[in-house]
Design a protein around this nucleic acid. Structure first.
Lengths: 346, 346
DNA sequence: GTGGATCGAGAAAGCGCTTTCTGGCCCACT
DNA sequence: AGTGGGCCAGAAAGCGCTTTCTCGATCCAC
C-alpha cells in the first residue's frame, strides 16, 4: 500500500470551496461562520476523513495536550496503580499520556525527559523514588530547568530531593515507623528487613522509619539484619532464601519487606522452605498493592493511597506552579494488619 | 515564573554565528560541516540547553518516533505485562510509547485512535479483545482506514475480527480446551465457569474452547453453570459469592475463571466461605499473570507468553505491512497445573 | 593559468496549521 | 441619503525545523 499523503486542511478547504481560515474556524469553532459554509466544511471534513495534524497545530501555537509520565517499570503493580490514577485525571482533562518505562536506568530516565521536552509536553511526571546520586541529579536538573523555563510543568511522586519540583510524597518514614510499632506491639523482638537498593530514597526512608521506631523500643536493627536485594518479587524471593540459608538457627520472628512486591516473593520462599506464616514467622510489606489482600495469608502492610498519589501529582501539574517555591503534598499511609502477622511463638 | 519562549534553532545559529541550515546539519549530522563551525554550533546548543521542537521536526517531514498503545486498563496485570513487552521493543527501536487506557469504554477507544492519528503516530497497537459490536467496528474502521492509508501501521493483540489488521493472537480456544482436558482428566465432572462480558471476543473463545472440550467428554456445560461477571478481581469475587449462595447443595467440583484476575477474586471468596482449594473445589484461571504462582494455593492456569505477545505485536508494527493481507501470529498457551486443582473428592 | 569539478555554507521554500490583519458587505442611525 | 460600525470571509504572516537549491570558494588536472 502506497503511503498517500495525508488529507490536509487545505484539501478540506478546497473541497468545501472556502478559504483555509474559514475551514480552520469551522473545525475549531473559533469564530462564527455562515451556516451554509459551516455545513460544507463539516461535510467535506467528514467525507475526506480529515484528521488535523497535531504537530502542525502545536507548532502554530495551538495546544499541547500531552503529558509525559516516567516510571521505573510499567508492569510493577505499584506503578501501575499510580499510573491508573494519573490517567484518570489526565483523561478527564482531555490530556494524552505518554508513559515511559526506564527499567531503572538513570540514563534512560534523563533521555526520556529530553524527548518529552522536545515534544513540548505540557507536563512531565516523575513517578518513583529518585536515585540518590549527584551526577544523576545534575543531569536531570539540566534537562528539567530549561523545560520549566519554557513553561513546562513538572511534578513528582516520591521524594526527588535534589530536584526542586512539586511533589506528592507518601509518608514512607512515618508509615514504616507505625508499622514497626504495631509489630513490636505484637511482641516481636527479632526482625529482619528485606531492603531494596540503598540508592533509592524510598528504601532509605522506610528503613529509617522502621529502624528508628525499633530503636525507640530498645530494639537494635543490625546491619546484617538488613538484606539488600533487587526491588522485585524475585529480589524478595532470593533474599529470603539467602536469609534462611544463612541462619536456620536464630531466625527473626518477623520479616519486613520494604515493598509488597518483595514481600510476595518472600512469602513464596518461606512456603517453599516449609515455614508457616505467621506461625513460624510474621511477614509485613509496604504499599498495599491491590493483590496482597488476596494472598493467603493476606499480607499485613502499610496502605498507601496509590491511585490518589497519581491523581494528586497530575493535579499539581495541571494547576501549574503558582509560586516559585515547590509545593509538597504529603499523604500518609495506614497500617493494615492482616493474617500474615501474629504474635511470635518463639 | 514567566514562560519565556523556547530556545530555537535560530537562537543557536545566531549565537554560533552561522546559518540555520548549518546549525541543523551539525545537530543532525546530516552533512559534513567545517570543524570549527561544528564546534561552535555544538557549544552554543549546549550553552543554551537547546532542545529541538519535535513538532517542528515532525512537520518538516522528519521522523515520527512515537507509537500509540491502547489497552483497557493499565493497572490490570495482564495488560501491564503485555505493555512491558511492547515497551522493551519500542525502546530498543528508539520509539516513544504513548499508553492510553480506555477503561473499557468503546467510545474512548475510538477517540484515542483519532488523537493518535492526529499525532501522526508511527504505529497504533490495540491491546485486548475487541468488542463484538458492529457499530464499534465501523467507527473503529473509519478511523483506522484513513490512518493506514496515510502510512500508519496498526497491529493488535487478541482478536479484532472486524478490523483487518496484523494480529498477534493467543490461542484462547485451544488453551481453554487443553485446560478442560486436564481438568476432566483429574476426574472433574461438574464445572462452573466465571465468564467476563460476552461482548468480548476473548471471553467467547475461551468459553467455546472450554465447553467444547467438555462436550467432547460428554459433559454438558449448561447456561446457568456460566456466570457472567465483570472482567476483574471484584467481578470474580462477586460472581463466586453468588455461585455459592445459589447452590450450597450441588456445588461444582471445579471452577474455571476465564481470567487469572477473576480467579484471584474467586479464591478469596472461596476462602472467606470456608471452602478449601483444591480440597472442596478446584480452581483454574487463564493467562498466567506473574503473581498467580505466588498465591497459596498457586493457581492452575494456562500460561500465555504475555510479554512476547506485546513484543511480537510491536514487531509487526515496526516491520510494516508487507502485503495487503493482514498477518496473524498465533501463540499457543500451555497448561500449568499447580496446587489449586486436584482430584475431586466428591 | 584557466576550466571544470568539488565542497560546503547560506538563502529560501515549504511542512499544515492558527491567527492576526484586511477589506467587503450590510445594517442602523443621524 | 450618507456614513459609521459590525460581521464575517479571505489573504497572509508566522510557528521551528529540514532540505533542496544556489552560489562562492577551493582545488586539481590539463
Amino acid at each position: 500500500m502506497k503511503a498517500r499523503p495525508h488529507v490536509t486542511l487545505e484539501d478540506v478547504a478546497r473541497s468545501a470551496n472556502v478559504s483555509l481560515a474559514t475551514a480552520s474556524r469551522v473545525l475549531n469553532g473559533t469564530a462564527s461562520v455562515r451556516a451554509d459554509l459551516r455545513e460544507r466544511v463539516s461535510a467535506a471534513a467528514a467525507e475526506l476523513a480529515y484528521a488535523p495534524n497535531a504537530h502542525a497545530q502545536a507548532l502554530a501555537g495551538g495546544t499541547h495536550r500531552t503529558v509525559g509520565v516516567i516510571c521505573h517499570d510499567v508492569s510493577d503493580p505499584y506503578f501501575a496503580a499510580i499510573a491508573g490514577g494519573v490517567m484518570r485525571v489526565a483523561t478527564d482533562n482531555g490530556l494524552l499520556v505518554m508513559l515511559a518505562g526506564t527499567f531503572r536506568d538513570p540514563a534512560r530516565e534523563v533521555a526520556y525527559v529530553s524527548t518529552l521536552r522536545a515534544q513540548r509536553a505540557a507536563a512531565i511526571l516523575l513517578i518513583g523514588s529518585a536515585f540518590e546520586d549527584r551526577a544523576w541529579e545534575r543531569a536531570m536538573a539540566a534537562e528539567l530547568e530549561p523545560y520549566r523555563r519554557g513553561g513546562g510543568q513538572v511534578a513528582a511522586v516520591s521524594r526527588h530531593r535534589g530536584l526542586k519540583v512539586d511533589t506528592v510524597q507518601p509518608d514512607n518514614k512515618g508509615g514504616a515507623a507505625a508499622l514497626a510499632k504495631e509489630l513490636v506491639g505484637l511482641g516481636h523482638k527479632r526482625f529482619a528487613v528485606l531492603a531494596g537498593p540503598r540508592r533509592l530514597s524510598t528504601v532509605i526512608d522506610r528503613l529509617a522509619g522502621f529502624s528508628g521506631e525499633l530503636a525507640a523500643h530498645g530494639i537494635e536493627l543490625r546491619d546484617d539484619d538488613v538484606i539488600e536485594a533487587a526491588f522485585s518479587r524475585d529480589g524478595g524471593y532470593e533474599a529470603t532464601k539467602q536469609l534462611l540459608a544463612g541462619r536456620k538457627r536464630k531466625l527473626p520472628t518477623c520479616l519486613f519487606a520494604v515493598t509488597d512486591v518483595m514481600a510476595i516473593g518472600a512469602l513464596t520462599a518461606l512456603r517453599e522452605e516449609g515455614l508457616s506464616v505467621p506461625g513460624d514467622i510474621s511477614v509485613a510489606g509496604f504499599d498495599d498493592i491491590p493483590v496482597v489482600r488476596d494472598l493467603a495469608p493476606a499480607l499485613t502492610t502499610v496502605r498507601l493511597p496509590l491511585e490518589e498519589l497519581g491523581e494528586r501529582a497530575m493535579d499539581l501539574a495541571i494547576n501549574g506552579a503558582s509560586s516559585s517555591r515547590p509545593r509538597t503534598i504529603r499523604l500518609s499511609g495506614e497500617v493494615v494488619l492482616r493474617e500474615s502477622t501474629g504474635r511470635p511463638k518463639r
